[in-house]
Design a protein around this nucleic acid. Structure first.
Length: 1108
RNA sequence: UGGCCCGUAGCUCAACGGUGAGAGCGUCUGCCUUAUAUGCAGCGGGUUACCGGUUCGAGUCCGGUCGGGUCAACCA
């Protein structure tokens, strides 16, 4: 234990942090913060694993600060908070990074590079930036256990995933189906929605679009059309931007409530008369107004205006099930009842014709509506993006130029030509629209039917919605809005990914698909491996018989053949599992459940989480998959509280992106400003869930204002404590024995502890931080310390002084603890500085201490109120001084305060001394009503009266507004008043009104709310002398300081005699000497050396000598 | 296109539905300080995006418009 508090010359946060970091590592402070809570109630936290193959940015600092501060806070509140770190290691970004590094594409896998080599590279590359991440974690002070993290590519982790998949499989919640997915023929792979949402994937392209004519077939249900058309041909018009899908057309979708019309006109290409059906509101797109009901007989080829006439009008629902002739009859589906008009809710009349060409193979909507109406499916394009062999003259042609063939001819154009010739094209035009492109090959994406495995999340939807309501979402609207809506509209989870580096789907199938097995663990797989070898014989699984399987990734799992119950060989389904499954199963997989640590999950020690936090972009990602698996596997929520933080934007409100070059390097920021100030800024500037406009100026401000002030308050304390040898060795002075101001700051401190605790408990760190800032700046530094300065340097080391030291110490100590979760470095440093002398706390680090608990008995609302009055009155007097230009250093005789409430007078009297010294006046006079010349104003208290009066409020306000001085006096005297409002007697109480004395005739006054203050500005010669004396003291103190005298050095002073100041120096000689620690103060006629000073525009010399 | 969020001073943010909408930053002018920090007082700066409604009373609640953000979808 040291006997002196460390004093410092300058605040250097980054240096302090480096020292503290070293200290933490040396003494294992983090590990101990968990150990000291051994046996305590666990507070369960899950770390959402970052992917270490990208560099960390400033936005990672905010979510990690949030996680860290909650964990630190809960630790201080007595919980044991284990924080297992983790790494997300699978997935496309890793694969792409590897491909870029090796200069290969997906196609080279299996030829230029084996899958085994490829995956090995992924395994190595995925933790490429782990060091950078670890460095950030360290430097920003994020306490998370990185010694034993969970890593999603490890066998144990995957084994739990398999267990989870098998569990779902057994419940019948895992199934295989065809779904329409974005597919890149050029890359030969399906694309995830994440890939489709990469910037730049949606490009403007000009495509050939066709309004095709589908010939209606006569039948009972279509007779009304033919009747209207005079029994000539009737065509449905449907628009497409992808004419290559027309051969696969199986249906036409209309909106049930959309109004359609049958129009008689001419085909502009063939000039033949035709009757067409389309949505009424879209007529204007295809027909010129002047052509309506024009002379049909006069029409001839080449006419600009084509005559048209509406023959009849009907709802879409009337068209349902009308059959039509196949447009391009190359092939027909094997199943279903195609070539009918069907109803769909997605049909709009924004563009096109209001009739949607429906090819179930090439559109998600089409597929859905097609399935519902059983029109079958026809896939006349293969996976390379070319027509299959059965599409007549188009067979084998690429539907888009996927091969970069310079000779490529647009197949859409040829289809258009063919349809024109056959009188099946109503309009053909180039149309510019946005269309998704494969972000790797830059080629257009197709929507294509692919086999996929799904989790039947929809089966548990209601339960998920129900349990979601028990989750504490911060902010709440994310839970009800974004997440709630997402749950309401959920679709089954497509698990399949056709990739290489990821968790393999543990399902083996016979070739015909009639039998399958879902494997749930390594031992089970090894047993099946041996069984298959025995039953099937030969070389089956030969290399896996001895040691079993060693790596659960591709290609090894794919080499394994299992045997079905009926003895048939089974091969693994080739897909990998969506990486979101990896992270969603993290609560169990991080502990290798159920193969190990069963109790952790089943007793609730590590599941569900009490708290998780990530960026709001994880709402449909991690938050969703955690919830899905928690509910589907355990019928529980996976987390009780979730905080989603918003985006970090640049100072102009733009999204940070590498492209714009406005990304903030977190390492540089921390190096320059310190992690504490950065963390503080990120937390207090805006609520975590609001998007943050990141501006380093704000960090500088936090550094100066909060940390600088606190640091200086500490330095002030240390300086005088060291002089007086205050080490908190004296007994704690009971509050009731301390002076008013000490009890006040302790009261405010305890109120603050209460507020901060409530805010932290409510996951509102921004509120907590702002309250702390206000306390440190306004209350502690600029009121308590400022007003108490003299107590520290004047007088003997006895009761009052010790009380001041104890009070200030306690404030510093508690405030440091309150701040510790947000700013862990500086607070630990300050704590150690204090504690190493006082030894008050046995803990080795502030992060091992218990969070302060508010002492309700120390909170004194009256005291806080009257100090507020003192602050307000001081503020008013200072503004009056400013108005009449009298410096604070010039003493004045008195201030005058009109009193409308006796309680207030009593309150002010108790703090009168503080006010007098703060504003430098000799006395306070109170004006009560008996003196009678104060002008008073009365105002209704809307809040208390509003409830009682309701609709009468306006009249009441008018009556009160009309009160005379006598009325006001009456209500003040009686405490109530009877008034007549709208013919009714109503009694109001004194508390229903606010009485303000706003003016005192003949005085300069200032008001704030109900408070009014007047200042006596008469300066008597005596006051003048005193003022001058104080001016002189001020100048000499400055000389002392400039001369670097120690605080306790005694001096001799000689002053050049100036007439105007003579009397001041003579009359206040003792006062001046005491203030400046002078043994003598002499006047001489003329001084040639010394320092020139100026008082009230008079210049003269002063000689200050230190006594040796 | 839809869901959700947001729109208050030049900037960053406040304001249990209660009536002259406040701070900080920045500009300028003074002031206090035996604390190299901070502050205090003053001058400016606002039709609380717009329109309508509910209410005795709306920055706050409701509806609509406009603008921004975000997530999702992408459309024939």
């Amino acid at each position: 234990m040291s006997s002196k508090y460390q004093e410092y010359s300058q605040l250097n946060l980054p240096q302090i942090e480096k020292d503290i970091l070293q200290h933490w590592e040396q003494y294992q402070t983090f590990e101990k913060s968990v150990e000291v809570r051994e046996g305590a109630t666990p507070f369960v936290f899950y770390e959402g694993p970052p992917s270490a193959n990208g560099l960390p940015g400033i936005h990672h600092v905010i979510s990690r600060t949030l996680k860290d501060l909650v964990c630190r806070y809960k630790t201080m509140r007595g919980f044991q908070v284990k924080r297992k770190g983790g790494w997300d290691t699978h997935g496309l970004p890793v694969e792409l990074g590897v491909e870029k590094m090796l200069g290969i594409t997906k196609k080279d896998i299996g030829t230029k590079i084996s899958i085994a080599e490829y995956n090995d590279t992924c395994r190595k590359e995925v933790l490429k930036y782990k060091d950078k991440w670890d460095d950030l974690t360290r430097k920003m002070g994020y306490w998370v256990d990185l010694k034993d993290p969970y890593i999603t590519f490890e066998n144990k982790y995957i084994e739990t995933l398999w267990w989870a998949l098998q569990t779902l499989y057994k419940k019948g919640l895992l199934y295989k189906s065809v779904s329409i997915q974005p597919y890149s023929p050029a890359a030969g792979t399906g694309l995830s929605s994440a890939e489709l949402n990469q910037p730049g994937t949606y490009k403007n392209v000009k495509d050939t679009t066709i309004v095709a004519m589908f010939k209606a077939l006569p039948a009972d249900n279509s007779q009304f059309l033919f009747d209207a058309a005079g029994n000539s041909e009737v065509f449905f018009l449907a628009w497409t931007t992808t004419p290559w899908t027309l051969p696969s057309n199986l249906g036409l979708t209309v909106g049930a409530n959309i109004e359609y019309v049958l129009v008689s006109t001419f085909n502009q290409y063939t000039h033949l008369p035709v009757n067409v059906v389309m949505a009424k509101v879209l007529l204007g797109k295809y027909f010129k107004p002047e052509g309506e009901n024009a002379d049909f007989d006069a029409y001839k080829e080449g006419d600009k205006v084509i005559p048209w006439k509406v023959l009849s009008s009907f709802k879409g629902s009337q068209l349902e099930n009308i059959r039509y002739e196949q447009l391009l009859p190359f092939a027909q589906p094997e199943e279903g009842d195609p070539f009918r008009v069907i109803l769909g809710d997605f049909v709009t009349t924004e563009d096109g014709t209001g009739i949607v060409h429906t090819a179930p193979a090439f559109g998600a909507d089409d597929n859905r509506v097609g399935k519902k109406n059983n029109i079958g499916i026809l896939t006349l394009v293969d996976r390379e993006g070319k027509f299959t062999d059965n599409v007549g003259e188009f067979s084998g042609r690429f539907v888009k130029n996927y091969k970069d063939d310079p000779e490529y001819k647009d197949v859409d154009v040829d289809i258009a030509v063919k349809l024109k010739k056959e009188n099946r094209a109503f309009k053909v035009e180039k149309y510019e629209h946005t269309y998704p492109h494969c972000w790797r090959t830059d080629k257009p994406v197709l929507y294509y039917p692919l086999d996929a495995w799904f989790i039947k999340t929809t089966a548990m939807k209601d339960r998920m919605v129900e349990l979601n309501k028990t989750i504490n979402w911060k902010p709440a609207f994310t839970g009800t809005g974004r997440f709630g809506n997402w749950l309401e509209n959920m679709v089954d989870w497509n698990l399949s990914r056709s990739r290489y580096w990821g968790t393999p789907l543990p399902i083996w199938r016979t070739e015909d698909g009639s039998e399958e097995k879902c494997i749930g663990g390594i031992d089970e797989l090894n047993a099946e491996i041996r069984k298959a070898s025995e039953v099937l014989g030969g070389d089956v699984n030969k290399s896996y018989l001895h040691e079993g399987i060693l790596d659960l990734h591709k290609p090894y799992v794919d080499e394994i053949i299992l045997v079905s119950d009926s003895g048939k060989p089974m091969h693994r389904e080739p897909d990998l599992v969506d990486v979101w499954f990896d992270s969603g199963a993290m609560p169990y997989a991080q502990w290798h459940y159920p193969f190990e640590n069963k109790a952790l999950i089943e007793t609730g020690e590590s599941f569900p989480a009490d708290f998780i936090a990530e960026g709001v972009d994880q709402t449909r990602g991690w938050f969703y998959t955690l919830h899905v698996l928690g509910v589907m596997l355990f019928d529980k929520v996976a987390y009780k509280t979730v905080v989603s933080n918003g985006l970090v934007l640049d100072s102009n409100g733009n999204k940070m992106s590498k492209r714009l070059g406005n990304v903030v390097n977190p390492f540089e920021t921390i190096e320059q400003y310190g992690a504490d100030a950065t963390r503080w800024y990120l937390i207090t500037n805006a609520s975590p869930w609001d998007s943050l406009k990141f501006d380093v100026k704000g960090i500088g401000e936090a550094q100066r204002k909060l940390f600088g002030t606190l640091y200086n308050t500490y330095n002030f304390f240390a300086m005088y404590s060291n002089l007086d040898n205050f080490t908190f060795k004296e007994a704690y002075i009971p509050l009731e024995e301390r002076p008013e101001i000490d009890r006040w700051i302790i009261s405010v401190l305890n109120t603050l502890v209460k507020d901060v605790t409530a805010s932290f408990d409510d996951y509102e760190p921004t509120q907590a931080g702002r309250a702390i800032e206000r306390f440190v700046d306004e209350q502690l530094s600029n009121w308590y310390v400022r007003l108490c300065r003299r107590r520290f340097w004047k007088g003997e080391y006895e009761h009052d002084k010790i009380s001041a030291y104890q009070t200030l110490y306690e404030c510093l100590e508690k405030i440091t603890q309150l701040m510790a979760p947000v700013s862990p470095f500086f607070t630990d440093w300050l704590f150690n500085n204090l504690n190493s002398v006082s030894g008050r706390n046995k803990a080795a680090s502030i992060h091992h201490t218990d969070f302060p608990v508010a002492d309700e008995k120390a909170i004194d609302a009256d005291l806080e109120e009257r100090m507020q009055l003192a602050q307000d009155i001081s503020s008013l007097v200072l503004s009056l001084r400013k108005k009449v230009n009298i410096k604070v250093r010039q003493p004045l005789q008195k201030i005058l305060i009109p009193i409308t409430n006796v309680r207030i007078q009593a309150q002010i009297e108790k703090v009168a001394d503080l006010i007098k010294s703060e504003v430098n006046v000799k006395g306070i006079d109170y004006l009560t009503e008996t003196e009678g010349f104060i002008k008073k104003k009365i105002k209704p208290n809307f809040k208390s009266l509003g409830g009682k009066m309701g609709a009468k409020m306006k009249s009441v306000a008018a009556v009160i507004g009309g009160f005379t001085e006598a009325d006001i006096a009456t209500i003040e005297r009686d405490g109530h008043f009877n008034l007549v409002v709208e013919g009714e007697q109503v009694q109001i109480q004194l508390s229903d009104v606010e009485i303000i004395s706003e003016d005192i005739p003949g005085w300069t006054v200032a008001n704030k709310g109900a408070l009014t203050v007047a200042l006596d500005i008469t300066i008597t010669p005596q006051l003048q002398d005193e003022g001058n004396a104080r001016e002189l003291v001020n100048r000499i103190q400055k000389i002392r300081k400039d001369s670097d005298f120690a605080l306790t050095d005694r001096i001799n002073v000689t002053v050049e005699s100036v007439n105007a100041l003579k009397s001041a120096i003579v009359n206040y000689n003792d006062y001046i000497c005491t203030e400046i620690l002078a043994d003598s103060l002499e006047l001489v006629e003329r001084l040639h050396d010394g320092t020139e000073i100026e008082v009230n525009d008079l210049k003269f010399n002063v000689l200050v000598n230190k006594k040796s």
